[in-house]
Design a protein around this nucleic acid. Sequence first.
DNA 1: TTGAAAGCGCTAACAG
DNA 2: CTGTTAGCGCTTTCAA
Lengths: 333, 333
Amino acid sequence: MATIKDVAKHAGLSVTTVSRYLNHHPYISEEKKEKIKVAMKELDYTPNSAATQLRSNRSFTIGVIVSRITNPYFAYLIDAIEKEVKKTNYHLLIMQTYDDKSEELRLLDMLKQKHIDGIIMASIENELNVIEQYNQYGPIVLTGDKSLNDSYLPVVSTDQEKATYNAIQFLINKGYHKIAYCTGGAFDNTKHGSSRNKGFIKALEDNDISVNMEWVYKNIHTIDDGFNVAKNIMTLPRESWPRAIFSGSDEVAAGMVKCFLENDVDIPKEIAIIGYDNQPLSEMLSIPLTTVSQPIEAIGFESTNLLMSSLNEEKYVVNQETLELNIIDRKST
Amino acid sequence: MATIKDVAKHAGLSVTTVSRYLNHHPYISEEKKEKIKVAMKELDYTPNSAATQLRSNRSFTIGVIVSRITNPYFAYLIDAIEKEVKKTNYHLLIMQTYDDKSEELRLLDMLKQKHIDGIIMASIENELNVIEQYNQYGPIVLTGDKSLNDSYLPVVSTDQEKATYNAIQFLINKGYHKIAYCTGGAFDNTKHGSSRNKGFIKALEDNDISVNMEWVYKNIHTIDDGFNVAKNIMTLPRESWPRAIFSGSDEVAAGMVKCFLENDVDIPKEIAIIGYDNQPLSEMLSIPLTTVSQPIEAIGFESTNLLMSSLNEEKYVVNQETLELNIIDRKST
DNA sequence: TTGAAAGCGCTAACAG
DNA sequence: CTGTTAGCGCTTTCAA
């Protein structure tokens, strides 16, 4: 492979001048520019990115951490981020944690190794103070619920508590008072992500309904999980069934729809279901899903621009108005 | 940031010894190993990846090129690849072309820049001879249809022609003789990916059925595209309707199912539909989809191992038996 | 407007 | 078993 030295020799110039050309410096005569261009072409020259990185101490790569790419929420978020990144001279490195804390740390280490210049965290496994440690190695943008605002790191946040509150209130307004609840996490306050739990509890309280722990399902993520929750509900005596189910994702909701329909349970007459994320599949189900839509495009846009500004040491103010969550009212409620 | 020099000084040793420790060389006394470990800890040392890359001429990163990550086929393929890559000391760089030829070249250029050591091409936009040019900069593994075997590059291939042939024959066996056909590409022989077209045509020929070009739809990719195809079919006089539709992806099929059901067309009584890919959504639809399943896990496994062997200059024989496509018979046919 | 030369942090002969 | 030293390809003073 040709190096900058070869190009310089071929053009009868110094490496400095060639380097200047590469970096669009001013003060090069048109004549030499032309010579360099020709030499590069003839030698089929491409700069070695490792050398550039080492010398300039920048990789022009940013990382995005997600838990898993097969989750459409993340796939579409990455897509939105990538579209923004493409407008710059940066590359995007996609990193999956598979919900694993130590894997997340391994990825944060890439910041320390100068492998990447900055990170967007679309999912978060470790405690905030652990992640904040890594800020010294490069800018980190957090993405998620409003509760992340506790951190001094820049955040693109949505109000999951309010959205969940609204979703539950929506069910109650429709006359459903016995409401089951599925969460991807635990049902306590220790974790970020408990915001949805708070919204759920608050909405019930405000309507003088007490939480029935028998109807609270934890660590529910997949279609299969949803299927099993539905199966579990059907083992309850009929009078102990909830009248509606809030599920933390459309996949979970889809699994429930499947199970209930297979057992001739009428949705929403016998049991109503509300999903989360407004994934493409949600409107394709036998019973199109009522669901909470997330502003994925906006999250991607804002987080990328926020990170880019940090990288360029500029100020950036997140446009909060674009980050609202809405209920999409379809047939399942 | 601490460098290897700092560590050496701190431990009272030479950089060589520290470098040896880093690279798990033999012949270091336990005593010094311990000293180095301590020094690294105290200085919070992490090797600079750019320097390692520059010196060793390896980035320990491989790239995978897909057209778009939001397509579940690719998302699951990436997932399968990543699971294999994780077992090695390589990173995975995911790259999207958005079906753009020049974007694909930009990504192949990263091989030239030594940004990545090798590439798995899960989607292919450019002509094979163009891609082969890049093989001089690092190993490239092709993924896709058997027709890729024309290339001298290593290939993990499935027999799309046979699978399509089987799918059409399956429809014919069920008594559907008037068959419409949706393809993501054009309906000619110039492109790779025409294999499915060949399978379609051959199956009809073998059953003495002639191709009706009125029922051939080109450049059909998305749910919306599928919806529009169905809408188009419904504008035909009833006697010119096809009795079944082969669609190039489950998303397209899903769009058609949606449109037909909204218009009270009975599936499969009035019109049958077969999808492709066996995506999670295919069994969740109102009418669970008959579809052709692709061996995604196996494709990911084989392509990663094939690339890794090239990288290590070892021989690897693809296990062809795991790469079969099957028809999943559900309710839409 | 141009060039010489000193490294960026690390690895790998080579020499002990 | 350990250390000296010469670069990998590029950018950036500094001097002309």
